[in-house]
């Protein structure tokens, strides 16, 4: 008994520093520091998420997400190398280490964590599949769509969700499957199909780009799938995972606390404990992650809080904040305490 306890204590004494060492070790972070850049996998162009503008600068919610990670690690949001990936080569690019993380409006699913060996560090956009019809059709619910002709893009979960929804509700539909976004929208406008189904954000953005004709189109209230989108990292590098996860949470917390890129310098003298901890005035939060204590200050100063990021990238597409609002405003954006 006594010896057993002694052995146990010994094991603990050996294990403790070892555990600490494991927590410190981060091959990804080491590689990033050695390289001087975060290599971030993005899309080859999805409006509002990651898309190069006329000058070749990456814009969008995901592109800014990459910048927050660079701001947290280097204190410089520009130290990002964006690697455009397609939906076919995004996962191999992450697996092989070609990119450090994916910020590529990728849906968080069990399979991708349990089977592919990835870990989702958070959700920066709650999306879901919806239906859009012409107002003239007089439909108010997706349950009334029996026998409808539906425009859908092939090869995505969108197509499967559509079939599931109609089967569940014992309705029939005729799919019009079109690959190109341009064509599918043209087909819907010209009336080749009664219904256009895609993610709610894409539908809202489509409606917005119709200008004065937007009034002709309505989105039906049913959201038939959950598409939580967020950053992905390889499993097994907890330190880097923490940085990605908390960079996003820091932005959400900043919005909740009213800290913006404009007022962050004045907020340094704020007496609110939560703000002091967030901005690294007290608490030494950054050091716990192996970062500078001003990590969140740098993120907010250079990229902004979550609301600012939204205003800049998603609002111009005409997508309402909806469930992506803060939890205090009836949405799902909720950051655990930063302390």
């Amino acid at each position: 008994m006594h010896t057993a306890m002694r052995a146990g204590a010994l094991a603990l004494a050996i294990a403790l520093p070892a555990a600490e060492a494991v927590a410190q070790q981060s091959p990804t972070l080491d590689a990033i520091r050695a390289r001087g850049q975060v290599v971030c996998g993005v899309t080859t162009g999805v409006a509002g998420f990651s898309n190069p503008d006329s000058q070749g600068v990456w814009r969008g919610l995901d592109a800014d997400g990459c910048r927050t990670v660079a701001a947290a690690i280097f204190g410089d949001a520009n130290r990002v190398r964006f690697v455009p990936t397609t939906s076919q080569n995004r996962f191999p690019a992450l697996q092989s280490g070609e990119v450090d993380l994916l910020y590529r409006n990728t849906t968080w699913t069990l399979g991708r964590e349990a089977f592919l060996g990835f870990q989702f560090a958070g959700i920066n956009f709650y999306d879901g599949q919806a239906f859009m019809v012409k107002r003239a059709l007089g439909v108010t619910s997706a349950k009334q769509l029996d026998g409808a002709t539906v425009c859908v893009q092939p090869g995505t979960t969108t197509e499967l969700n559509l079939a599931d929804f109609f089967r569940t509700n014992r309705m029939s539909f005729r799919p019009v499957v079109i690959e190109s976004l341009e064509e599918i929208r043209a087909a819907f406008i010209s009336g080749r199909c009664d219904v256009y189904t895609s993610d709610a954000s894409a539908l809202a953005s489509f409606r917005f780009t119709q200008g004065p004709n937007a009034e002709q189109y309505v989105m039906l209230p049913e959201i038939i799938s959950k598409e939580p989108l967020g950053p992905v990292v390889r499993k097994g590098d907890q330190r880097f995972f923490d940085i990605v996860r908390w960079s996003l949470f820091a932005q959400i917390a900043a919005e909740e606390l009213g800290v913006t890129s404009a007022n962050v310098d004045q907020m340094l003298t704020s007496q609110v404990p939560d703000i002091q901890r967030l901005l690294g005035v007290t608490g030494g939060i950054g050091q716990m992650m192996g970062l500078d204590n001003r990590w969140a200050y740098n993120i907010i100063k250079q990229v902004g809080n979550f609301g600012e990021m939204w205003e800049r990238n998603i609002t111009p597409m005409g997508v309402p904040r909806g469930i992506n609002a803060l939890w205090t405003q009836g949405g799902l954006m909720y950051a655990p305490p930063i302390r």
């Binding site: 162009g45 999805v46 409006a47 898309n51 190069p52 006329s54 341009e182 780009t209 111009p316």
Partner: peptide, 12 residues
Amino acid sequence: AKTSIIEPAWQG
């Protein structure tokens, strides 16, 4: 060319 028409302002 494909990417240049992704921005909402230039879609279509």
